[in-house]
Nucleic acid binder design. Structure first.
Lengths: 253, 253
DNA sequence: CCATCTTTGTGCACGCGTTCACAAAGACAT
DNA sequence: ATGTCTTTGTGAACGCGTGCACAAAGATGG
């Protein structure tokens, strides 16, 4: 069976580098802020500072889109907003479904950053029958049984998975079978998908673990003591005095 | 730069590449699953498949940690779990605070993936006085006024920002001033921090925008037309108009 | 003890992404 | 029109990450 791949070299023809694509939303946000302040033009230096990147990198990124700047002046904010929006496909409406309406799913449904950028939450789906019909963010939750019908009726091509890890692959399979070709996965699981389907993952605990690594290294530098290979006996967690409330565990790890 | 004491570029640890560090949590998760099934050893091929990476890459990653494998056999699961945990700093307890208890903040507080990996939610902090004392995930929310005291009393070095974008930088500054040196930022804003402070960001809408780009290209490969030439200025800021003008991370309904 | 087989650990080559540095291009003043 | 000044666009060098391919290391069986 075809083991799916998360990332594909994609159409290697005249494509925009992946790293550049990942930064376009960053530029777009900065430009939108400038637009709302009615700033007419912006230099690469200023925009780069606002987006938190190197100015040379920004200019090279924009060069992949075309020559939209004016030498000696900078970039026209409105024009650039439109060009980037078009390049990212944000000038059209993208209906998305969110599967798994736990704490995180509800947060996503309420997230304002989606609607303001062309993403429309077409449906909320959960496996719990008790949730069915209950409105979240003004949208009634529907049951998983109707997943395929919902996808097809709304022409959904982007799905968001916010289920527990154990259900993620199964949900993913059903989404893909129903026609979804892009998936944003919040469940801490490696998803297997067929070719042609894009998967991006957001893992909350992984980010924290990466921070912990650097944090530990910073702490180790200060003590300047060569850390042995032996377990560093840190302060014990002491009495955690039991579970501070029963954690609903949206995502068991 | 101000307050720049550490001259280090925050990379160049003991020689472990950043890309490898980012994958270690992935391996750790796969190994933990194997450990729970009492699998004694695992080959690089099997583990790579479980983690969704190339086996050669996995072996090279592990080679940075040391020679923990046995040729002809594979890796000892338990031993590797311990080594990776130690390398990531997960053998010690990391108290974290979450600032901004909206939908997302509440979801994070309930997230099971934190506690199970050495991260302990030491406190929840919100600017809304109405939230004070109200328990979320069994932890009473505290007011922003006490932020500095909370950080210091609990020895917190990792902070999570889940506030609206407009408040993020201010919260960040206070966290850093109080001693936090690692920040996980969910607000759609570029944070400016002094040297020595690590920031990782998770932006929900950026991920969707990247997916939309690929989705559009997939659709465009077939029908090059369909460019409706919609007016560029169709976006409407739903609500909340801060000086930043951008979308808040999460707005309580 | 030796032969064979499995799997690790890694040298090497390649491609992508980043950054520097600068020529070309255009605005603006005179 | 011409010179000057600002800023873009990009060629080129460099470094990092990835993946191949294989030798070394150890287990296993006779």
């Amino acid at each position: 069976m075809a083991t799916g791949r998360t990332h594909r070299p994609a159409t290697r023809s005249r494509g925009i580098p992946e790293a550049t694509v990942a930064r376009l939303p960053l530029y777009l946000r900065a430009l939108t802020a400038l637009s709302e302040r009615s700033v007419p033009t912006v230099s690469s230096e200023e925009l780069a500072a606002a987006a938190g990147v190197n100015s040379a990198k920004l200019r090279k990124d924009f060069s992949y889109l075309g020559s939209y700047g004016t030498r000696g002046v900078g970039y026209d904010v409105e024009y650039l907003v439109y060009q980037i929006s078009r390049e990212l496909g944000l000038t059209q409406d993208w209906p998305v479904v969110i599967v798994g309406i736990g704490n995180l799913g509800a947060a996503l449904a309420n997230y304002g950053g989606f609607a303001s950028r062309g993403f429309r939450v077409a449906a909320l789906i959960d496996a719990d029958p008790a949730m069915a019909g209950k409105p979240v963010a003004g949208i009634p939750v529907q049951h998983t049984d109707d997943l395929e019908k919902i996808i097809q009726d709304n022409g959904v091509s982007i799905g968001v998975i916010a289920t527990p890890a154990g259900a993620a692959q199964q949900v993913c399979d059903r989404l893909v079978a129903a026609g979804v070709t892009s998936i944003l996965n919040f469940a801490p699981t490696v998803l297997t998908v067929p070719d042609g389907v894009d998967v991006r993952k957001v893992d909350l605990s992984i980010e924290l673990q990466i921070l912990a690594f650097h944090e530990q290294r910073k702490a180790g530098e200060e003590t300047a003591a060569g850390d042995g290979a032996l377990p560093a006996t840190t302060r014990d967690a002491s009495a955690d005095q039991g579970p501070d409330g029963d954690v609903p565990a949206v995502m068991p790890a």
